[in-house]
C-alpha cells in the first residue's frame, strides 16, 4: 500500500473519529442523499474509498462540492458510521492541499443576489475553502 495514502487515511480517520469498517454497505445513506443526482460518487462509496485507501479517486471526486451537509445520511445510518463526517473530512483533506480551494472570494459576487443571507456565504467559505 502507498505510504502517502496510508497517511491520508490516518488523517481522515482522525478527523471523522469513525470506523469505516463498521459500514455494512446497506446503502441507506445513499438512499437518503438529496444531492444524489448531482454526485459522481455517493456517500457509501466515499466511506468505502477511504476504507480501501483509494485516494487517487478521492482526489478527483466532484460530488464533495454538491454535498449539502444536511446530515440525513448520518442520522439514518444504522451503524453510526456517519458518512457526512467522511464527506466533510475528505472535503477538508482536499481543500487543505495546495491549490485545493474550491471557492475564491472574487467569485462570490456573481454567485449571490440581493437576498442571499450572510449565512450562505459564511457556510460556503467554510465548506469550500481553508
Amino acid at each position: 500500500m502507498n505510504d502517502t495514502y496510508l497517511e491520508y487515511q490516518a488523517e481522515i480517520l482522525r478527523m471523522t473519529d469513525r470506523d469505516p469498517k463498521r459500514c455494512m454497505i446497506c446503502g441507506k445513506c445513499t438512499a437518503s442523499c438529496p444531492a444524489f443526482s448531482e454526485m459522481d460518487f455517493h456517500p457509501h462509496q466515499i466511506v468505502g474509498m477511504v476504507e480501501r485507501c483509494e485516494f487517487d479517486v478521492l482526489e478527483t471526486v466532484e460530488g464533495l462540492w454538491h454535498c449539502m451537509s444536511c446530515m440525513a445520511c448520518s442520522e439514518r445510518c444504522p451503524r453510526d458510521v456517519q458518512p457526512a463526517r467522511f464527506m466533510d473530512a475528505v472535503r477538508q483533506w482536499r481543500i487543505r492541499k495546495q491549490g485545493g480551494e474550491h471557492l475564491h472570494p472574487q467569485q462570490v459576487p456573481e454567485k449571490i443576489d440581493e437576498a442571499t443571507p450572510q449565512q450562505a456565504i459564511a457556510a460556503a467559505f467554510r465548506k469550500y475553502r481553508k
Binding site: 462540492w65 454538491h66 451537509s69 444536511c70 465548506k127
Partner: peptide, 19 residues
C-alpha cells in the same frame, strides 16, 4: 425535514431549486 439545498445554492443553484 429534507434539505432545501443550503449553501449549495451558491455552487449549483439548479440543484437547490430541484430540492
Amino acid at each position: 425535514n429534507e434539505c432545501c439545498g443550503a449553501y449549495v445554492t451558491m455552487e449549483d443553484r439548479a440543484a437547490a431549486k430541484a430540492r
